[in-house]
């Protein structure tokens, strides 16, 4: 059998195959995809109604709670999707399918990580666009072209950060039950301990400190700013207890966290995938 000679082409071929498999699974079992859109929309309606009469002074830079909530729900959708990205890998581990990948002469085992990342990123983009579109229909506005770029750039960083942690957990934890349990424990508390549902000024001091170090906050605030008509990267996005952070600061912090997480998990992935 004549085997092609170019490593880059090989990497593309194997990553495309792995990603395609994930999309075939999604196409044939789309319930989690639709649930991922439906849940934040239900939240948008319910939370929007619940806090419809909240004093507007508490919500910096927006004129309604629905406007405020949109960014939080976009980030929550991407975060939940990325947090769950380890599950297919865990099932592959448990059912032995991972061995099929490990005995194959993959150019780089990175393709296994890359495919999960591409899949979750595309999924998050589509789900986020659906949420943004429905928010728009509800009168909560839509970011301009540059703002849209910031939304997607922020989502890419968040997805990469959380996906790398989730894939790492998929190798470290003994089985899918433990992974699901951990996702349950982490998912909502991280959302509530961020600025997704309320601004820091609304929180008790201790929660404000936690929220101002929460990576979700670093993703939510730039997206919230991206919705404003006078958007620019140097606008103050977060009034943290330790000082003001601009949109640029938030994205840079998210970028650093992503790099840090990739550096930390790399030895583990190397060990497990060699």
């Amino acid at each position: 059998m004549e085997i092609q000679q170019y490593n880059f082409i090989f990497l593309y071929q194997e990553t495309a195959a792995l990603t395609k498999r994930l999309f075939i699974q999604l196409k044939r079992r789309p319930s989690t995809f639709f649930a991922g859109i439906l849940q934040p929309i239900i939240w948008l309606f319910l939370f929007g109604a619940l806090f419809a009469n909240a004093p507007k002074d508490f919500l910096p830079g927006v004129d309604s709670y629905g406007n405020f909530l949109g960014a939080g729900l976009i980030v929550f959708t991407a975060f939940s999707g990325a947090l769950n990205s380890g599950l297919p890998l865990m099932f592959d581990r448990e059912f032995g399918f991972l061995n099929r990948l490990l005995v194959a002469p993959l150019t780089s085992r990175l393709s296994i990580v890359l495919s999960s990342f591409f899949y979750i990123t595309i999924l998050s983009f589509v789900q986020s666009l659906a949420i943004m579109f429905i928010s728009f229909l509800l009168g909560y506005g839509f970011p301009n072209f540059l703002g849209l770029g910031i939304v997607f750039a922020t989502l890419i960083l968040l997805v990469l950060f959380v996906t790398s942690i989730s894939l790492c957990l998929a190798f470290v934890l003994p089985g899918h039950i433990e992974l699901i349990a951990l996702i349950f424990v982490v998912n909502l508390p991280l959302l509530f301990a961020s600025t997704a549902l309320a601004p820091i000024s609304f929180m008790p001091s201790w929660l404000g400190w936690i929220a101002s170090f929460n990576p979700l906050t670093f993703a939510i605030e730039p997206i919230r700013i991206a919705y404003s008509s006078n958007f620019n990267l140097d606008l103050v996005a977060l009034n943290a207890p330790y000082g003001d952070l601009t949109c640029r600061n938030c994205i840079s912090l998210l970028f650093l966290l992503t790099i840090l997480s990739l550096v930390i998990i790399r030895p583990l992935l190397n060990k497990k995938l060699t």
């Binding site: 092609q4 082409i9 495309a16 195959a17 075939i24 699974q25 079992r29 002469p105 150019t107």
Partner: peptide, 16 residues
Amino acid sequence: ILTGRELLDFQADLYH
């Protein structure tokens, strides 16, 4: 979830 043919196609790509 995959058909047999899709599985073989997938495997072939892993082997370049």
